[in-house]
């Protein structure tokens, strides 16, 4: 049976219970979202939501207002994207502000191990991307 967000939260919470690598909370509303704080990756916050057949995993790379030379940055992002395993760079609008995100998608039928792998890869890729793209940040 495919995961829904609440079910996935329960699984992740029990998987990480007792450990101090990851803090997990459920941001509860009509559409709940899991917020993970990955302590091993500088407290990178990763949001996870399951909808229908998919699990969507996303983290904020940088708000566009903190980027100087947007053209150069966009070019660099497009070049990094193909060599980024398992996750993608994207531009989205949050609350009217342009924000660059790193995100990945999984089947809602994915195993807990696969979700974990994706989470770790996403956090690592995000830190790597931030490091590589640092010259563009204010």
């Amino acid at each position: 049976m495919p995961h829904d967000t609440r079910g996935l939260h329960a699984l992740l919470a029990s998987h990480h219970a007792g450990g101090d690598d990851v803090s997990i909370e459920l941001i509860d509303s009509s559409d709940p979202v899991i917020n993970l704080t990955m302590h091993a990756y500088g407290d990178t916050q990763v949001q996870v939501a399951a909808s229908g057949g998919q699990i969507f995993i996303s983290t904020i790379l940088v708000p566009a207002e903190q980027v100087r030379d947007r053209d150069g940055f966009n070019d660099a992002c497009m070049r990094i994207n193909p060599i980024n395993p398992l996750s993608n760079l994207g531009l989205t609008s949050i609350d009217g502000r342009d924000v660059y995100i790193v995100f990945g998608e999984l089947s809602a039928n994915a195993s807990l191990d696969e979700v974990e792998e994706e989470l770790q890869a996403l956090a690592m890729n995000t830190i790597d991307a931030a490091q590589a793209l640092k010259p563009y940040f204010d």
């Binding site: 559409d31 979202v33 949001q47 939501a49 229908g52 998919q54 969507f56 904020i60």
Partner: peptide
């Protein structure tokens, strides 16, 4: 599914 999940995640990020 993607649009729905993206929207949920964005609301959470806000």
């Amino acid at each position: 599914d993607t649009v729905r999940a993206t929207a949920s995640v964005q609301r959470a990020q806000v």
